[in-house]
């Protein structure tokens, strides 16, 4: 068994080294968020900052970080609600009645794959015409373009896995079609519904291109706020790091909650995981 032990040790050393490489940039970001200006503009670099107070976090939140988080939260929650509500209805229809057939389902999915730069240009002109630029609703509907197809497709997968016999039993018991959907099918796919919602929230929270073009001064999602800080005259690295960490924490929590469904969500349901 000696050779096997050697292989096992090598495997764990390999995993450990790669893990260190994967996490080091995060560690540097966290350290930077506590550094004073003299500590990040210096050579050789200072590794451990002199103090660990939250001064830069407070200042970063004042420099638009708090507003960015509020805007991102409003936009991401509302677009998620919209996508989930409409998406699960359509998904049920596709799954149980096969309405429109396979091609219709694939058309919906294909909307999800459009390059954002291709759709943002006509949307920009469209929202300019409606005087919707720099409003929440412009971004909420734009993200629906990505989230609705995603929600339809994910929820269709979850409904497909549900045995129809349960709903048939409900129908025989005198429940209407709508009742079978609301009282039987929907509660049973609740975990899938939550997972899909969290994914939609995550996509919208992290998105940058649409936010950059359709927001401006009244609506500045967190990603645009961070990019703006980087483009500023004087680059406040500690504040930028601090805001980027605050923006990432909710997403990391969601990712951990979603672990079971992660592969499925990220491959649009193609790999069930």
């Amino acid at each position: 068994m000696r050779r096997r032990d050697g292989v096992t040790v090598a495997v764990f050393v390999g995993i450990f080294v790669l893990l260190a490489v994967a996490l080091a940039p995060f560690a540097w970001n966290v350290l930077t968020s506590f550094k004073e200006k003299g500590e990040y503009f210096t050579y050789p670099p200072v590794f451990v900052p002199s103090s660990f107070d939250l001064e830069h976090y407070v200042r970063g939140l004042h420099l638009g970080g708090a507003k960015g988080i509020k805007d991102s939260f409003i936009i991401a929650s509302l677009t998620t609600l919209l996508a989930i509500a409409l998406g699960s209805l359509a998904a049920y229809s596709l799954s149980r009645f096969r309405i429109g057939g396979d091609n219709f389902a694939f058309w919906i999915l294909s909307v999800r794959m459009m390059p954002p730069i291709a759709s943002v240009l006509p949307l920009f002109l469209f929202f300019r015409f409606l005087r919707w630029l720099d409003t929440y609703q412009a971004l909420i509907f734009t993200y629906a373009l990505v989230n609705i197809p995603f929600a339809v497709w994910m929820m269709k997968g979850f409904f497909d896995e549900l045995p129809v016999e349960l709903e048939e039993a409900a129908l025989i018991d005198g429940c209407g079609r709508l009742g079978a959907f609301v009282r039987v099918a929907l509660p049973l796919v609740a975990p899938g519904l939550v997972a899909t919602a969290l994914f939609c929230f995550m996509f919208s929270w992290n998105e940058f291109l649409f936010a950059l073009i359709l927001g401006r001064s009244r609506v500045v999602p967190i990603t645009v706020n961070i990019a703006g800080l980087i483009g500023g005259h004087e680059i406040l690295w500690a504040e930028i790091s601090a805001v980027s960490i605050v923006a990432s924490v909710p997403i990391i929590v969601l990712a951990i909650l979603l672990q079971r469904y992660l592969v499925r969500g990220l491959t649009l349901g193609a790999v069930k995981g």
Partner: peptide, 14 residues
Amino acid sequence: LLPMMISPVVVGCI
């Protein structure tokens, strides 16, 4: 998985 979950904007900052 963390590098993939956070926003590309944050990846850019880092």
